[in-house]
Design a protein around this nucleic acid. Structure first.
Lengths: 344, 344
DNA sequence: AGATTTTTCGCAATCGTATTCAAAGAACCT
DNA sequence: AGGTTCTTTGAATACGATTGCGAAAAATCT
């Protein structure tokens, strides 16, 4: 990187192309700028010969004059929850489809975070998308987003910044309803981060729906982290209280919980639900009932909010997900048949 | 994105700063260019007042003159294997540490791939890192890497391009040795992609070590994909042949296989090994013996090859991983104790 | 046909920095 | 002191596009 690769033959410039076909350099530029004032025949001729000699406008130079980079900075801090890779994948593709590139900022908590984000400013990214669990305090958040369009994904609690997330309230209520309808009455709750707005939202929707249906919370616990081990420990803690179902605040917790319940031999008596629908929840070994986050809708809305001229006054966009019923809430004890694999 | 955010106050330029403190613009530029000809006192004075008024060099402008972007294009195409998120995370952080930004290219197979990669050229990324399973044919690969430093991660078979990967041969041999030492003699193999160079490498190392130890392959099968379901199906296919161990070409296959074996009630009689050491392999519910890919070493080597002035003649860098022994190859039938969770 | 409006196109300035070149200053030698 | 070398600095230019402005050309109107 210190030295330019010698085999790099300099690309053609607009001026060279212009000289070659005897038009002005501006004409070449306009040929590549949609909506600019240029006659169709000339434009076509230019585009044609551009294709022939392999000319492409240099994006860097154009950034300098237009002050737009078509780059969005994607701030991420922890990918250990398998939900995020899927979101990340869809999101980068969605942005790519509308001509936006994604510059990754993978910040490590603790260290001077602003320094990890300076490129957001020096590279003049057009927009910043911040995914969830990122450990940004309000000051850093303001600094990073200052002067550019910003958007929070799956991270609530900032009324001044546009936010896109799954409808956590609807999801939690829907899961409670499902447990109720399948006959469960003694429901426990395993929380992840209780201090996070998203964790709180799910929990309060859970308890309020419980109350509406006339049930009492059978037990609750939290390890303040979303992880498999936390779910395992949480489930073990709740099992003695004899719940007939456990509501896990996220799938990754639920998977740990399911394994713990299998291990303890109570998997058939205690139903389990999660939240997210990560790929593993669909594995025959788990077969977890859960509320699927509408990744596609989230991506579409995100792209829309980033590309639309004027985003409109609504800040919070909570999109409906979908209940996915699997064997972990089967009314009958889980049969072997319920665990058969999908046809490969 | 169509319109610049109005609250974006224009940042200070080097010329403004220069005027403010009565030096030339070149001086400011030099103050921020390590190794350039400038006296220490002047440099310090400039840096000091730059800090005060919040000046930072505009990276875009500097890209234009230097023709270096400090951006590496990261080409990815499928994140469904949980090994890649971890690699991705470490890699972006590693690059960030040496001042390189990561521009994501998440290509969807099938569609016109070059179009999805044009930004590699127009954005003038300094280097291209291509991660594994990406579906690039040789022509596209050459086109995408032309004129810039390129590097393949976990994808063999291109002798002209620098390649960094885990030592698949050593890994496979090591796993076979472990199975042998723990008393297994009838070993089956579940492959993923048999046509991929990496799949072939693991398989041939497996068979050759088997032969060296005087064993015969008990059975082999492949679904031509690395997935949980494929592993499940593969295991079911091998079980009738009564192996005492199954070698899965990757962890994700092994997890499906383990669940299938549990389901079939033979998990205690058949050992299983995988390859990668993805996070789930360490979960108490699986506890899979595997060969850990040295992500940290891979990242370090990658960063080194991208930053060093002259990469040297060696093309293939196969880095040693590490055998991780867990309950799936326990000599005794798996006891309940072996499945206890880590202390939370 | 002549006048007026609209399109099209080239010239030139601009974006913010890096870097060459030459001049000036400092340091070093004999 | 005088000459030589090395260091430091600023002026000027280049990087490769975009875009305002005005002139020429084309289209429209009366």
């Amino acid at each position: 990187m210190r030295k330019q690769n010698p085999k790099a033959s300099k690309p053609v410039t607009s001026r060279q192309l212009a000289a070659l076909i005897g038009v002005s350099q501006s004409a070449v530029s306009r040929a590549f700028t949609p909506g600019s004032s240029i006659a169709a025949p000339l434009r076509d001729r230019i585009l044609q010969s551009a294709r022939e000699i392999g000319y492409r406008p240099n994006a860097i130079a154009s950034m300098l004059t237009t002050r737009r980079t078509n780059i969005v900075g994607l701030v991420v801090s922890d990918m250990s929850n398998p939900f995020y890779p899927a979101l990340l994948e869809q999101l980068t593709q969605g942005l790519q489809r509308v001509g936006l590139q994604t510059l990754m900022f993978n910040i490590t908590p603790g260290a001077n975070i602003e320094e990890q984000l300076v490129a957001i400013r020096t590279y003049n990214v057009d927009a910043v998308v911040i995914i969830s669990a990122t450990v940004l305090n309000d000051r850093t958040l303001a600094w990073a987003t200052e002067g550019r369009r910003a958007l929070l994904l799956n991270r609530l609690g900032h009324d001044d910044i546009m936010t896109v997330c799954c409808d956590n309230t609807a999801g939690a209520r829907c899961l409670v309803d499902h447990l109720y309808e399948t006959g469960r009455r003694r429901i426990g709750y395993v929380a992840g981060l209780t201090k996070s707005a998203i964790g709180m939202t799910r929990y309060s929707a859970f308890t309020s729906r419980l109350a509406e249906l006339g049930m009492r919370l059978t037990g609750t616990t939290s390890r303040e982290i979303y992880s498999y081990d936390a779910g395992w420990a949480g489930a073990l803690e709740l099992i003695p209280q004899k719940p007939d179902a456990i509501f896990f605040a996220s799938d990754i917790l639920a998977l740990g919980g399911l394994d713990a319940m299998k291990q303890a031999g109570v998997a058939r008596e205690i139903a389990a639900v999660g939240f997210d629908d990560i790929p593993m929840s669909g594995w025959p070994g788990y077969s977890l009932t859960t509320y699927r986050q509408p990744i596609e809708k989230i991506v579409d809305k995100t792209v829309e909010l980033l590309t639309v001229a004027e985003p409109g006054p609504t800040r919070l966009h909570a999109l409906p997900g979908e209940l996915v019923v699997r064997a972990s809430t089967a009314t009958e004890p889980q049969s072997a048949a319920a665990l058969l694999p999908l046809t490969p």
